[in-house]
Design a protein around this nucleic acid. Structure first.
Length: 480
DNA sequence: GTCAAGTTGTT
DNA sequence: ACAACTTGA
């Protein structure tokens, strides 16, 4: 395009899409030629540098974004290095007048971005950020006392009462571009893709990128959305939306998902649609909590548990849990699904988390760390909320006696044992009832699966009792 | 101050 | 029934 036109940097982060991208739109609306950039700076994430599965996804998503930009006559320029100096040298080299980006809400990144915005504005550069990730800003909703919400239901009631559907915005088919400034580095230089291709199995299940996100939404609407309220608890079926990694990387705007769901509303589907949108509400609530309680990725939301008697780190047990060798089939199925696909069904996440924190009584942060490194949808807000909720240390006024029984949970939500058979195939030869608790017939287990653990790491009844005792001490009246 | 309600449980 | 807490209006 014309080299005289004013340019602006559009700094892509966790908003790896073109449609419904407020930062891109702002640059275009202001008449700038947008220069799309991505800066790889994993050291700026505090204690939560992205994990390996997350990196593998990001590699492909960045690739897809570059292709989408190229199809519109633009391209993505990638850089490695500290964000602020990189932005500053790019501003000089491109003669750009402004930087636009969409906000992230992880505490370390929020802090970094505030500093960057101030520094840029001090030097006279227009620096503006937008909400591209959430239905509600984390600070938007408050109780009548002006406090942050600590319970989901009143939060979501307030959210729905103030909800206004944003119109969809489709990016123009052609984007202006310029050759001014450096080209950046090839995608491979970011070293996001695994050196060994352990992620090979992932991509049979996932297509990172905006088109993949849109396809996942359509697949959901045509399929699992119908009956979602019931079926979402069934790990043996495709009962969920599978949108979580797409939402995490910003490959689709949540408000576009809401609009697409609402467009399907009929009396018969209302319950399913409300249930699906409510799950997006949990994502909103998690960001609300992380914003107001930024210490919770590391520390208990409820300080009563700060001196709780967690198990000392006995590595072999933790490792057995991680590797799907706990001896509890539904737990092992979940952990192996995670390892092979980078994802785990939400119902099973609760079961494996309950087993780790209650039966094995490991501190929830061991589980949170493992999920962080292995999930393609690893998200600091969601991960923190989920683990603290299960552990009973979280925002919920948690009944400490909520201990999932992995056998009854499996019987209830995987009634034919098909999920177990799929991910723990050595148990497939057992009759269905034995798949839930194979230790009940040691001979059959030995014959079918000589290498599978004879017994669970911790006896279920004994583990439950021990956990209840430990938690009762915390939950009791002593701290009033 | 009162009072209703709280995602997902187990026996 | 558990055992009895916290949140939010």
């Amino acid at each position: 395009m014309t080299d005289a036109a004013a340019t602006a940097l559009v700094w892509f982060r966790n908003d790896l899409r073109l449609d419904d991208n407020p930062a891109l739109r702002a640059a275009l609306d202001a008449g700038y030629v947008p220069i799309p950039i991505y800066i790889h700076a994993p050291d700026e994430h505090g204690d939560w540098r992205p994990g390996a599965a997350s990196d593998a996804w990001r590699h492909r998503s960045l690739d897809a974004l570059d292709l989408d930009l190229s199809a519109r006559g633009s391209r993505l320029r990638r850089f490695v290095g500290p964000s602020l100096p990189t932005l500053q040298s790019l501003l000089l080299a491109t003669d750009a007048e402004a930087v636009f980006w969409n906000r992230r809400y992880e505490p370390a990144i929020e802090k970094r971005d505030t500093r960057i915005k101030q520094a840029l504005r001090r030097q006279g550069v227009r620096a503006d950020s937008y909400n591209g990730a959430l239905l509600f800003e984390p600070w938007q909703l408050a109780t009548r006392q002006g406090e942050p919400y600590r319970v989901f239901t009143p939060y979501w009631r307030a959210a729905l009462a103030s909800w206004q559907q944003a119109p969809n915005w489709d990016a123009p088919k052609q984007l202006p571009s310029t050759d001014r400034g450096p080209d950046g580095v090839p995608l491979a230089a970011l070293k996001l893709a695994p050196a060994l291709d352990w992620d090979r199995g992932f991509w049979e299940h996932w297509t990172p990128g905006e088109a993949g996100a849109r396809a996942a939404l359509e697949t959901f609407i045509d399929g699992a959305m119908n009956g979602y309220a019931e079926q979402r608890d069934r790990p043996d079926r495709v009962g969920t939306s599978r949108l979580s990694p797409h939402l995490h990387f910003g490959e689709i705007a949540p408000w576009r998902a809401v609009a697409a769901l609402q467009a399907q509303r009929t009396a018969a589907r209302a319950g399913d649609i409300d249930a699906a949108i409510r799950e997006l509400g949990w994502r909103e609530f998690a960001h609300h909590l992380l914003h107001h309680f930024p210490h919770t990725p590391e520390r208990n939301f409820n300080p009563r548990f700060d001196d709780f008697d967690w198990a000392r780190t006995v590595a072999p047990r933790l490792q057995a849990w991680q590797q799907g060798r706990s001896g509890v089939p539904i737990v092992d199925a979940g952990m192996r699904e995670l390892w092979h696909t980078g994802w785990m069904h939400n119902r099973v996440r609760m079961i494996v988390a309950s087993y780790l924190t209650k039966h094995l009584r490991y501190h929830w942060r061991h589980g949170a760390r493992w999920f962080w490194d292995t999930l393609v949808d690893a998200d600091l807000a969601n991960n923190t909320l989920g683990w603290q909720w299960v552990a009973g240390t979280g925002a919920d006024a948690a009944p400490y006696f909520r201990v999932f029984n992995p056998v009854t949970q499996a019987e209830k939500f995987d009634p034919d044992g098909r999920y177990i058979a799929r991910w723990v195939p050595e148990l497939a030869a057992l009759p269905t009832p034995l798949r839930f608790a194979p230790w009940r017939d040691p001979d059959a287990l030995r014959r079918a699966a000589p290498d599978y653990p004879r017994k669970p790491l911790v006896d279920l009844a004994a583990g439950r009792d021990a956990a209840l005792n430990a938690y009762r001490e915390r939950g009791g009246g002593e701290s009033r």
